[in-house]
Write a protein that binds this DNA or RNA. Structure first.
Lengths: 109, 109
DNA sequence: CCGAATCCAAATAGATACTG
DNA sequence: CAGTATCTATTTGGATTCGG
């Protein structure tokens, strides 16, 4: 997760290195809707554990896909949002949505 | 790999269930070029092992993404190609290529 | 050549308890 | 609330051997 792999030549591998992971795509899907707090993500990304959500958010923050904003309040509040780079993943998400819907239709027919 | 998970509501999860896996995306990337033999895939999908390639191809065949054609020859020949459903993944691959290239540029600047 | 089978290593994820 | 720290379980992948 936190490893510094060498940069692959192939752009597909480059992309996979950053989001080639089930959880990350789901986190991005939910952040596409807008800023969310940690516990909101816990709920919307069904089945993820606290530890895994945290480590993925850290990795994506490091990769420049996600912003993390901490509010000095009690109780604490931390908001996550996509950076511009993160938002630029939208075409990938959109094509996955389109394909997933199409695939389900072919199953039903 | 071979498990029968229930069909998710979210189209993104549906897609991830079928190709949400580093190796599968790379195999599809290479099959987009056209029909390939087993050993060709072994070479083009850098770093994959025989076992893993085999099991992924089986899973994708079962999912209706890949055709497997066996020739009754000596030495044996097996050719893999994408089905129409597999080919329909092209927009996802394309958007991953585009994003990966864009991301690399942002790193260099 | 393609691949099944076995066994083992590594990576990833979950459960639980605790804290500023 | 939003984590961190452990410890364990599961999943995934690699190495090797063998066979049609």
């Amino acid at each position: 997760m936190e490893n510094e792999k060498k940069m692959p030549q192939c752009p597909v591998e480059m992309t996979l290195q950053l989001i080639g992971d089930k959880w990350k795509v789901l986190i991005i899907r939910d952040l596409m809707e807008g800023t969310k707090r940690f516990n909101e993500l816990m709920r919307s990304v069904t089945g993820i554990s606290q530890k895994v959500l945290t480590s993925h958010l850290r990795a994506m923050e490091k990769a420049g896909l996600v912003n993390r904003k901490v509010f000095a309040e009690v109780p604490p509040r931390v908001e996550y949002s996509l950076t511009e780079t993160g938002l630029s993943l939208k075409p990938i998400l959109d094509s996955m949505v389109a394909w997933g819907m199409h695939y389900k239709e072919t199953l039903e027919s």
